Simulated assay, not measured.
Amino acid sequence: MPSAPIEKVAITDAAAALVAELAAAHGPLLFHQSGGCCDGSSPMCYPRAEFLVGDADVLLGWVAGQPFYMSAAQYEYWRHTHLTVDVVPGRGGGFSVEAPTGKRFLIRSRVFTDLEADSLAEEVVPTGRRH
């Protein structure tokens, strides 16, 4: 019997509740894992219609009904890492939709176990599609 695929990204209940609030106000959203200097490794959350996913972005999975992307170059460094989107009090990235709420998304990470790494399905590849 085949096992369930290993998820690369997850979300906490608290973060999922904030996503639900934000989606009610802004419509469909998407996450893009920031790799820039200004926001560190904050996951940025945008209205889906306002963010152009590039050909070199990879879809890691879905969290709270929203797609989660990362650049292929950054994924090369994080490919062995499971990501969990969480939320904490504080000011988020200026362009991320949660910024005015007094909360910010952050990533908690861990290296995949050997069993998980062995079970990972085909490697994630650039989407080449736009959402």
Rank of each mutant, 00 (worst) to 15 (best):
G90K: 12
A25K: 15
Y77K: 05
A49C: 06
T113W: 08
D114S: 14
A73L: 08
D86H: 11
T84V: 03
E7I: 02
P2A: 12
A15F: 08
F112S: 05
L52F: 08
A117P: 02
T81N: 06
V124C: 08
V53Y: 06
L18W: 07
G40M: 08
L120N: 02
A56L: 02
E76M: 00
A72G: 00
P2S: 10
V88H: 06
K103A: 11
V124R: 08
R110G: 06
P28K: 14
R130A: 05
W62G: 01
D57K: 04
D118G: 12
L29K: 13
A73K: 08
F51M: 08
R130M: 01
A17S: 15
H80V: 00
A72C: 00
Q74M: 04
R110S: 06
H131N: 06
S41Q: 13
D57M: 02
V97K: 04
G27K: 13
D86S: 13
G35P: 06
F105W: 07
G90V: 09
D39K: 14
E7N: 09
L52Y: 10
E76R: 07
R130Y: 01
Q74I: 00
E122W: 08
Y75T: 01
E21N: 15
V53Q: 05
I107N: 10
I107C: 09
R104C: 07
Y46M: 07
Y46R: 10
A99V: 14
D118H: 10
V125R: 12
V125C: 06
H26S: 11
L59Q: 01
L83I: 03
L60T: 00
L120T: 05
S34P: 09
M1Q: 10
Y69S: 01
G94L: 13
Y75F: 10
P67G: 04
Q74D: 01
H82L: 09
Q66N: 00
G128F: 03
T127S: 13
V124I: 09
E123P: 08
E123G: 07
V58K: 01
R91Q: 13
L22Y: 05
G92V: 08
P89E: 11
P126C: 03
A72M: 00
E7T: 11
D13Q: 15
L18Y: 04
A64R: 01
V111A: 12
T113K: 11
L18R: 06
L22C: 11
A20L: 14
D39H: 13
G35A: 14
S42C: 13
T101N: 10
Y69M: 03
F31I: 10
D57I: 00
V88P: 03
V63S: 04
T101Y: 07
E50I: 02
V111L: 11
A49H: 09
F51K: 12
E50M: 04
M1G: 12
E116L: 12
A4N: 12
V125W: 10
L52S: 12
Y77F: 04
G27P: 06
V88M: 07
A73R: 10
P2H: 11
V58A: 01
F68I: 01
L60K: 00
Q74K: 03
K8W: 11
F68D: 01
L83C: 07
